[in-house]
């Protein structure tokens, strides 16, 4: 198992441009089948120009930025606040910073503050807690 460098925060990562197909793939995976996320007619009738992403889709993308660094197996808490909608064509830039670290002989606890932005706006704010065994850190 590769060691985790807890001091070097990875650079932001960009995902997209997102398509309605990406939304549908997430919808099938998650079970959120609401038609407003893929049917243009339904979206227009509800007053939108086009379908928008289910909020949990960018939430999953943001979580993936953090787990790519610290590992899903080490995650203990993940929270997101939905700030603005995500649209087809959006490129999401995910990044994070360390808010708090505690260490003892056995493990390191890291709290992250996360942000997901589209070209237009902040779409999500996130918070994550990871607990990493001492043997896995450098």
């Amino acid at each position: 198992m590769a060691k985790i460098s807890i001091k070097s925060v990875p650079p932001p990562s960009a995902v997209g441009p997102l398509t309605v197909t990406d939304f549908v793939v997430y919808q099938g995976a998650s079970g959120d089948l609401a038609s407003i996320h893929h049917d243009f007619e339904v979206a227009r009738l509800a007053g939108y120009d086009m379908p928008f992403a289910p909020g949990m889709y960018p939430a999953g993308i943001l979580a993936s930025w953090a787990t790519a660094w610290l590992g899903a197996r080490n995650l203990r808490r993940f929270k997101v606040r939905f700030v603005s909608m995500v649209w087809p064509g959006d490129v999401l830039t995910c990044e994070g910073s360390i808010a708090f670290v505690t260490e003892d002989e056995r493990e390191t606890t890291i709290e992250l503050e996360l942000t997901c932005r589209s070209q237009q706006a902040v779409t999500l704010l996130g918070w994550a807690t990871f607990v990493i065994p001492a043997a896995e850190t450098t």
Partner: peptide, 23 residues
Amino acid sequence: AVGETSVNPDDPEAVIPPTFLAT
């Protein structure tokens, strides 16, 4: 779907990604 890279689904001990319980 979410671009998770730290979990290999073929790993016999693969864990779920952070938001998987949405399923």
